[in-house]
Design a protein around this nucleic acid. Structure first.
Lengths: 241, 241
DNA sequence: TTTTATTTGTCCGTATGTATC
DNA sequence: GGATACATACGGACAAATAAA
């Protein structure tokens, strides 16, 4: 068990970290602004600069702040809470957070489904699917890039509908699918690649969240599967059981 | 819409990628083994090396393969599917996948809860909590490091129990909590820091999955909250709705 | 330890089909 | 139709890292 100062029962660096975190949560330090210098914070708490550095390091690891050598430590923007549940709609989620959702079609085509894709969508191998590559934004800030696939027989020219509606929900509604349910979601993480780096406006080496999902209509038939990359610094998934 | 060779309706590099992916899924290329060289694959499909490189790049982005300059391209180990549901138990999940789960206590103490922690656990500010830092492994491979907090009044010396049982489920059972439920899970991503880098046996700059969770007992009272960092290359979360 | 061959990474270029204005 | 931009595909050269002789 760790050494603990007798007076408080809490390691110094944890107290400093808690205080700074409270300052961010309470609005004392606004997103995007610069924190006081390490020496200044140290003086303020009456601790050594190393203690402040340890506190800042834990906050940086959790993505609350970002240190820039030679410049200072900055408060990161709060991540958008992105709930994953039976009813998961990008536009609804972003809209609820008080932001304006926007989708943009990057590319599309009709292709024969590979083995994996055919299985996910319950199709025969090489059955035609509509592929839609898209970029999704909240308040003009890119949130994710991804690819969706729909059965081409049931949803012919879905890509053209998406291009005008800029919303998957509206696109499906065009085909009389008024409601649908998320069946399964898989979440992993990786590093951004060069192409996504530009599309998502991220620095090279930034982490991204990989999401694979399958949606069913109300009869339980798969209608849509998506593979998306989210900017990890802007999003946090929330699963409520 | 993209240019497509008329004969097939599918871009060449996509066909190559699909074929290699099928080879991995079908066991033709086993995890950890080396794929044929780029030139060899190119000859096999009758395409240019650059076309193969594009196919491999997409597979690498999804974490299926990993290229090593001067050596070759290797099939990555399949990520462990880690379901997130009402009943989420590390040892059960790892055990079900045919692996041996193990937990190790790194550090612990009793501390006053900060504002955020007290709220999550439904305690008064500065109420004492037991903090347990731990490392969890599957087949001796580190999977995650994290910190759990429990109300100290209800679970006195929970850290000592954990140290011997090496399992949170067994620790809670010791306090007559035979069952508990995951209430909420938050998932983000970041880069590994120096300390976790060593603990998780990762290369610097590797992505990690950040997980914050709160568990309730069957009365709906919060009993446990955890903040963990998972090695993204070894784990994939699965949410079924 | 040094050399050599192999393999991936990066850059130059050319040609072609498609989409957009 | 023309001009432009972009993605695909091929060709070649060399650098950098690795592995084996």
């Amino acid at each position: 068990m760790t050494y603990q100062p007798a007076e408080s029962g809490l390691a110094l660096w944890r107290r400093v970290a808690d205080a700074i975190e409270s300052g961010i949560a309470g609005g004392k330090y606004q997103a995007g602004t610069r924190l006081p210098g390490e020496l200044e914070i140290a003086e303020q708490f009456g601790v050594h600069r190393h203690t402040v550095r340890r506190a800042l390091a834990t906050l940086a690891e959790r993505g609350l702040v970002r240190a820039e050598r030679g410049s200072g430590t900055y408060v990161e923007a709060q991540r958008i809470a992105y709930p994953i549940r039976s009813r998961t709609r990008f536009s609804e989620i972003i809209g609820t957070s008080g932001r304006e959702a926007d989708g943009r079609l990057i590319d599309s085509s009709v292709e024969p489904a590979g083995a994996d894709l055919a299985k996910k969508l319950g199709l025969k191998a090489n059955a035609p699917v509509v592929r839609i590559d898209m970029l999704r934004q909240a308040n003009r800030v890119p949130i994710c890039v991804g690819t969706s696939w729909l059965p081409a027989e049931r949803f012919p020219a879905a890509d053209r509908i998406y291009k005008t509606t800029r919303s998957m929900t509206k696109t499906l509604a065009h085909f009389e699918v008024t409601d649908y349910r998320r069946a399964v979601t898989r979440v992993g993480a990786a590093l951004v690649d060069a192409a996504d780096c530009a599309a998502l406006d991220l620095r090279p080496g930034s982490p991204i969240l990989l999401v694979e999902s399958v949606d069913h209509d109300l009869n339980g038939d798969p209608i849509l599967t998506t593979r998306a990359r989210f900017a990890a610094e802007r999003i946090e998934f929330v699963i409520e059981s």
